Measured scan of single mutants.
Amino acid sequence: TFELKGKVGKVVKIAEDHYLVEVEGDKWIAYSDEKLSLGDRVMVVDVDGLKLKAKRIP
Rank of each mutant, 00 (worst) to 15 (best):
L50V: 10
V47E: 04
D46E: 10
P58R: 07
D46P: 02
Y31F: 11
V23I: 15
I29M: 14
V23T: 03
E16T: 10
D26K: 13
F2A: 15
L4Q: 09
V12L: 14
G6Y: 03
V11I: 06
G6P: 01
L50I: 09
V42E: 00
V45E: 09
K51A: 10
V11M: 02
V8T: 14
R41D: 14
I57C: 14
W28T: 02
S37R: 12
Y19P: 01
K10M: 12
E3S: 02
K35V: 12
V47F: 14
S37G: 11
G49P: 04
G49N: 08
L52E: 00
Y31A: 08
I29V: 12
D33Q: 09
D46N: 03
D46L: 03
I14Y: 08
H18Q: 11
F2C: 15
K55L: 05
A30G: 11
E16W: 13
L4M: 13
T1P: 15
E22L: 12
E16L: 13
V23M: 06
E34R: 04
A54L: 15
F2D: 15
V44E: 00
E24L: 10
K13S: 11
V23A: 03
D33R: 07
D48G: 02
V11F: 00
I14V: 13
T1E: 15
E24A: 07
I57Y: 10
L52P: 01
D40F: 05
R56D: 01
L52M: 04
G39R: 08
G6A: 02
T1W: 15
K51C: 09
V45P: 01
K13V: 09
D46Q: 04
K35W: 10
K35L: 12
V42P: 00
K53R: 08
L20F: 12
L50D: 13
D40P: 00
I14Q: 08
G9T: 02
K51T: 13
L4T: 08
G9A: 08
K13M: 11
V8S: 10
E34W: 04
Y31V: 12
D26V: 14
S37I: 13
G9E: 00
A30V: 04
L38N: 07
G9K: 00
M43D: 05
L52T: 02
D17T: 12
R41V: 10
V8P: 04
V21N: 00
V47Q: 13
E22N: 08
D17L: 10
V8Y: 08
V42A: 04
E34D: 15
M43L: 10
E3C: 10
E24R: 03
L4I: 14
R56M: 06
R56I: 05
I29S: 13
E22M: 10
L36R: 00
A54R: 01
S32M: 04
L20C: 08
G25H: 08
D40R: 02
K10Y: 11
G39M: 11
E24I: 08
L20T: 10
I57M: 10
V47P: 02
R56K: 09
V47D: 04
F2S: 15
K35G: 08
A30E: 00
E34V: 05
M43R: 04
A54N: 01
D17G: 12
D26E: 10
E22H: 07
L4N: 04
V47N: 05
V21T: 03
E24F: 06
D33K: 07
Y19I: 06
G6T: 02
L50S: 12
D48K: 06
E34C: 08
V21Q: 00
L4K: 06
G9F: 06
V42Y: 01
D40G: 05
E34T: 07
E22D: 09
K27T: 10
K55Q: 13
K10I: 11
A30F: 02
K55T: 06
D26P: 05
V11N: 00
I14C: 10
H18F: 12
V11S: 00
P58Y: 13
K53E: 03
E24T: 05
P58W: 12
R56P: 06
W28G: 01
I29K: 09
K7I: 02
E16I: 11
H18A: 08
S37Q: 12
V21Y: 00
R41S: 14
V21I: 15
R41W: 13
D26F: 15
L52R: 01
K13G: 09
V47K: 05
V11P: 00
V12K: 06
I14M: 11
K27D: 09
I57R: 03
L38M: 10
K55V: 08
K53A: 03
L20D: 06
W28E: 01
T1M: 15
S37A: 12
E24M: 10
H18N: 10
L38Q: 08
K5T: 14
K7N: 04
E34P: 02
T1I: 15
K10E: 13
G39V: 03
L38D: 06
R41Q: 13
R56Y: 06
D40M: 09
K27G: 08
G9D: 00
G25I: 04
L4H: 03
K35E: 11
A15R: 14
D33I: 10
K5M: 15
K10T: 11
G49M: 05
G25N: 08
M43E: 15
I57P: 03
L38W: 09
K5G: 09
E34A: 06
D26T: 15
L4P: 15
K51G: 04
M43T: 07
S37K: 11
Y31H: 11
V21R: 00
E3H: 05
L4E: 15
L20M: 12
T1V: 14
K7Y: 03
D40C: 07
G25M: 08
L52I: 14
R41L: 13
D33W: 08
D26M: 15
V45Y: 03
Y31M: 12
L50N: 13
T1S: 15
G39F: 13
A15M: 14
V11W: 01
S32C: 14
I57A: 07
G25F: 07
V11R: 00
K10S: 13
D48Y: 12
E34S: 07
F2P: 15
K53H: 06
K55G: 06
H18K: 09
I57T: 05
D46G: 06
L4Y: 03
P58Q: 12
I57G: 03
P58D: 12
Y31W: 14
G6N: 04
V44A: 03
T1K: 15
